[in-house]
Amino acid sequence: MRRQVPLAITFIVGWTLIIAVFIPHPPFGQLGENFTTYFDIIAVFAFILGGGNLIRVHGNKVYKKRQDWPYSIVTILGFVVVLIAGLFKIGNPDGLSGDLTQPGSLFQDLYTYIFAPLQATMFSLLAFFVASASYRAFRAKNKEATVLLVAAFIILLGRTPIGGYLTFWLPESLSFFHIPNLAYWIMTIPNLAGQRAILIGISLGVIAMSLRLILGIERSYLGGEGERS
């Protein structure tokens, strides 16, 4: 019974939403959006679980003075300060009725001076990691890898002005070989063909997976029923 109810809900809602795609007439036309709104509402309430879990895990860590427990104090403090700054709109020139992001509000200051630089720092790690991963991965081990390497060089040059400067002297009849044009061609023809093939495969995979879920064949995400080998 514990499994049957969710499976029945999945079956009914799944087929109803699939059919609703083809029926614009109310109430079917809005079903998809309505159900997603329900999901969002549930997700908002579920956040209480997440926030509660965060406080519990880190609170325990501090209380039991486990390894690296001072970091947990930072986590809890960050959570509480941002929550209070946002909920009570501290420092907001228009008080509780004003826009949360007004200049001068503590929330906006926390955003500008802490949140934004931290986010940008994490994202900028990508530049370093792309370099080290490229260094390791781009080896001309065989013909295919060599083609990949050459394409990568053309894109790297073509995505900067340097590519343009290197081949600006090419006559109009050979403009295809102008590095930015070559890079554009690689991105919009071979790369696009590969992307589309992967997308078609993914879409079909999603259809098959969704059908398994709707038909109740795939249930391991619910914990399964001891059917696995």
């Binding site: 549930i42 997700a43 209480i48 679980l49 997440g50 619910l222 914990g223 399964g224």
Partner: peptide
Amino acid sequence: RSIVMTTARESIKE
């Protein structure tokens, strides 16, 4: 994600 947390727990428990 909070819902992923509860679902993952359920799945691992089973």
